[in-house]
Design a protein around this nucleic acid. Structure first.
Length: 570
RNA sequence: CGGGGCGUAGCGCAGCCUGGUAGCGCACCUGCCUUGGGCGCAGGGGGUCGCAAGUUCAAAUCUUGCCGCCCCGACCA
């Protein structure tokens, strides 16, 4: 395409509202413009890049037998009421009414829709398995859109859904997706981490996330550099460090002592001269409207995700101060498990086998010493602890690290949740009804672009992987008015076009500096500069990412480019 | 939804405290000039100062309300 005819509104300065790099560059490079909070228009460059990403996704999904569909974006409330998610999704769902007052919503995901198609049409085991997918816009009324295209209210997603006869079939579909996702992210030039994840409000059992390590991310990944263990922080298992002080041995009775104004674990550690690892933290939570007391080692953090998982809870919050006083007769700084019998008491596994610890006395300004879990109170033990950096790897014992990351893909084994609640059944070989088992697999299309920018940029702009850049090459005649340069540039451009390479010819009447700056900014992977060496028949071939450049003959430029792009030389 | 910040030309900002009818840089238009890293010179166009009400002879400036955007938190397949 000819640059002089295109709308590529590059900016010299960074718009004030952009905080993260990818957002700044997307705006500066003229890829996107904001319409409203979390809602963006994708201009030419973004559109081209996103189309390339979609095409890679499409090819890999087709390769595992996926069938592309285009599903409705506007959904009747009834479907979501059937699955129960009309309620569950709460304010995250965009809702509207039609002229007759019927409730509708904008699709945030399509489990209900594919299930509704399947239950009307799939009748026999012979029709399974099925892999259906779509690449289209989804809507979520995010409470706080932010970071450019990272957290938005309208975005493109590839979602696939699988239907299988049994768990074994689902395993196959799941593994196929896992493999396809690896190929997709490889082809997009991204270094990803696939982690075990929690399946959240989707329901279901096994789940993996594909993450890109980045400071712009909102998720945390725990990983072991030694053995390769990796997991979402919400799910990560780790070995806690040893307590800093040995427990007092022996059978002692809990003993109350006065602790004026000692509210936090740190206060108590100082006051009692015993480390945080010898303290027990008492957390009053409200889980599905019922109070629960959680006991943790003093220096440990509760993972609310793990808590929700073990209790199969949908709603979970810390108790309000008034509730705490009502249930415990004391306020938050002095809570403890001894004598509590009006609620479930849970304890983290790290408290198993500990003896004679310190915890609250359920009386303001008093604590108890010599409290032994399992003797002085009988908790239900679970793994409730959030992994922390420095914890030991559960597999090999090496120290774990925690990195910030952006989620770009998520695969789930859904199980029977939707098939059951929405009445999807087929007849099996023996003539009996079978409920198919489902899987659901998403990829955030814009996030691939965003992550590529976060990963690959320098002070001059983006340096996109060739597979997803809006153009493969930019041809830059230093002075397009110069007839020889023009002739050479036009020739190379025509050659590229004939060879099926996306070339951008910078035919603008601009000074070379402007053209170079713009080319760098928009991140085209290769640039052929046509200038002073043309009288020797040579042009300059440059690589954006590395800044490496070499002189090649004009007549060999196309072949050189094809080689670098991994294409057959024509 | 809680806390904070910002809203003045397409972009970045000053002016606001101390009220007197809007300015700078970049971008844009015209002409000349220049052509290997956002040239130079000259001329020019563009703003109901987020919206509304109030105070005042007079409001970008003071007061109140609303709206929008950004950041932190809560939230988040």
């Amino acid at each position: 395409m000819l640059w002089s005819t295109l709308f590529i509104p590059t900016l010299r300065e960074v718009p004030a509202e952009a905080e993260v790099i990818s957002h700044q560059l997307l705006l500066r490079a003229g890829y996107i413009r904001q319409l409203s909070a979390g809602i963006y228009n994708y201009l030419l460059l973004a559109r081209r890049s996103l189309l390339k990403i979609e095409q890679i996704v499409r090819e890999e999904m087709n390769a595992i037998g996926g069938q592309e569909m285009l599903l409705a974006a506007l959904h009747p409330a009834e479907l979501w009421q059937e699955s129960g998610r009309w309620q569950v999704m709460g304010d995250n769902m965009f809702r509207l009414k039609d002229r007759f007052g019927r409730d509708l919503c904008l699709g945030m995901t399509h489990e209900e829709i594919v299930t509704s198609i399947a239950r009307g049409e799939l009748r026999s085991y012979k029709q399974l398995p099925q892999i259906w997918y779509q690449i289209q816009t989804k809507f979520r009324d995010e409470p706080r859109p932010k970071s450019g295209l990272l957290r938005v209210r309208q975005f493109i997603m590839k979602d696939s859904y699988t239907f299988d006869l049994d768990a074994k079939g689902l395993d196959i579909a799941y593994d196929k997706h896992h493999a396809a996702y690896c190929k997709i992210f490889d082809r997009c030039g991204l270094e990803y981490i696939d982690v075990e994840a929690h399946s959240g409000a989707m329901g279901g059992s096994e789940s993996h996330e594909f993450m890109i390590a980045s400071d712009a991310g909102e998720d945390f990944v725990v990983r072991c550099q030694n053995c390769g263990y990796r997991a979402n922080l919400e799910k990560a298992v780790s070995r806690a460090s040893e307590p800093l002080a040995a427990d007092l041995d022996g059978n002692f009775e809990p003993e109350q002592f006065h602790t004026p104004d000692q509210k936090t674990i740190a206060d108590l550690a100082q006051f009692t001269n015993l480390p945080e690892t010898s303290q027990m933290k008492s957390l009053a939570m409200v889980v599905d409207k019922k109070p629960v007391l959680i006991m943790m080692r003093g220096d440990h953090q509760l993972s609310e995700t793990k808590l929700a998982a073990v209790l199969h809870a949908t709603e979970l919050r810390p108790a309000h101060p008034q509730e705490i006083v009502e249930w415990f007769g004391a306020s938050a700084g002095s809570l403890g498990p001894v004598g509590v019998n009006n609620m479930r008491v849970l304890a983290d596994d790290a408290l198993k086998g500990r003896r004679n610890l310190i915890t609250g006395a359920n009386r303001d300004d008093y604590h108890l010493r010599n409290v032994t879990p399992g003797e002085d109170f009988r908790p239900e033990y679970f793994d409730l602890r959030q992994a922390a950096s420095g914890d030991a790897c559960p597999n090999c014992g090496s120290p774990l690290e925690i990195v910030k990351a952006i989620e770009i893909g998520h695969i789930f084994k859904l199980g029977y949740k939707y098939a059951e609640s929405m009445g999807l059944r087929v007849l099996g070989e023996d003539g009996k009804e079978i409920t198919p088992i489902m899987g659901s697999y998403g990829i955030g299309i814009e996030r691939i672009l965003t992550c590529a920018i976060e990963l690959y940029h320098d002070p001059d702009g983006m340096a996109l992987p060739a597979s997803i850049a809006p153009f493969s090459v930019v041809i830059t005649p230093v002075n397009y008015r110069e007839p020889l340069q023009r002739e050479a540039a036009d020739l190379l451009y025509a050659e590229c076009t004939r060879a099926g390479i996306d070339a951008l010819l910078d035919d603008r009447d601009e000074r070379p500096g402007v053209k170079f700056k713009d080319a760098d900014l928009i991140g085209i992977p290769y640039r052929v500069t046509i200038g002073k060496k043309l009288n020797e028949g040579k042009v300059e071939f440059g690589e954006r990412r590395t800044r490496a450049s070499e002189e090649v003959l004009l007549h060999g430029a196309l072949a050189h480019l094809q080689k670098r792009l991994g294409l057959p030389v024509t």
